[in-house]
Design a protein around this nucleic acid. Sequence first.
RNA 1: GGAGAGGUGGCUGAGUGGCUGAAAGCAGCAUCCUGCUAAGAUGCUGAGGGAGCAAUCCCUCCGAGGGUUCGAAUCCCUCCCUCUCCGCCA
Length: 423
Amino acid sequence: MLDIKFIRENKKLLEKVCQAKNVKLDLDRLLVLDEKRCTLIQQAENMRAEQKKLGKDDIEKAKELKEKVRPLAEELVDIESAYNDLMYLVPNVYDPATPEAKDDSGNKEIEKWGEPTKFDFKPKSHVELGETLDLIDFERGVKTSGFRGYYLKNEAVLLHFAMLWHALLKMVEKDFTPMLTPTIVREFALVGSGHFPFGKDEVYQIANPGKLADGEMIKDPAYLAGTSEPSLLAYFANSVWVEKDLPIKVCGFSPCYRSEVGSYGKDAKGLYRLHEFMKVEQVVFCRADVEESNKWLDQMCQYSREILEELKLPYRVLQICTGDMGAGKYKMYDLETWMPSRGAYGETHSDSNLTDWQTRRLNIKYKTKDGEKKFVYALNNTVLASPRILIAVLENYQQKDGSILVPKVLQKYLPFKEIRAKK
RNA sequence: GGAGAGGUGGCUGAGUGGCUGAAAGCAGCAUCCUGCUAAGAUGCUGAGGGAGCAAUCCCUCCGAGGGUUCGAAUCCCUCCCUCUCCGCCA
């Protein structure tokens, strides 16, 4: 959400943003609704003030006024509802330096660490490795869970948790408050984070929303969140901090659920695109200052890079272009980690500066030194998501003899240093 | 799942139809007073939106949403949440 005043004054800019971000929004209609809304509010308020003044001195006249206000109030409800629907669709502006493009072809590689792993043998994919070493069972996963189902087994399970644990400890070390967040969330959390109304299809809905047999509506349906970000943000909904308490740094651990509708054909095999996985996520709230928030964006990226570097996994940093960055984002990086079976880097982290776009939706503010109230800026980034990261670990660490070495940094958490075929 | 009770400002807590946006206390801020500490005196102190250079004025908000009424924190309905007891359960 943006400030309506800003929208009024920057129509041209926002038209451009809508086009660049591929957001369909009738800005003219929004502005017309806004105008009507202001007029109606003013009229209704004046009448109500008059009505109140009359009090019980002239009940007849007050009655008349009441009847006059009623249709105005009714119209206002309709207009405000339409107005709000559109307000939730208004995208955030983006950093002027953002590469412009219609799709991910415009993403710009801004840094690279390490080189793609070279093998002096024909490397296996994590799917093959998972099968021969008895680490992953897709067949039974699908049998039990359906398309994209999987079981992790044996060392892969411990490796998965070792990495998540390592990631969580890392963030605690960086002074983030660890949180284990709800995965079942209400609508407002997803509207607040901006996952709604844009990506409603991608979220699993539970609690049977809609009409009951007697025609009653079930309100407040529940959803399975695709990340702990909505929960981490919603935790602070309707709160006001004092400037000196900023930044607020939290990290969440949670299972993540994604329906992946609209990507049926993509990444059909392996651990890349799953309906459920686990993730450690970092969220920072900072002062309403673009420069400061961009510094945090870089800093959060650095934390994630540190983990990839400790794991000695080759990666690159992309700045995401306008067409690929999502309505709410002001600036965004992805980290892509080298995945030998793809012969390419695959997205493992996503780092975003949303400025006040989310905090306006959730009403999260702070009081400045001058006593002024402002919406805080919010940012989020993946710390580590698994099993996807397992693709990179299993494949990059495989040996000629078919075994897999355990990254050194993880060995302290594990009762083994390598993974070999079972007898 | 069954049976009860309840949700009021930063906190405690009055208030059951009409100058109540809300008593009182605590906390907070300001000033004064007392040789420190402590205590005392007085005043100020909720949020959102709108008009105005400003003083100020107007509207909305007592869990949320509807309804009754000229008028609702107060009456009615729905929902959400909290607490107590019972049942069930990892």
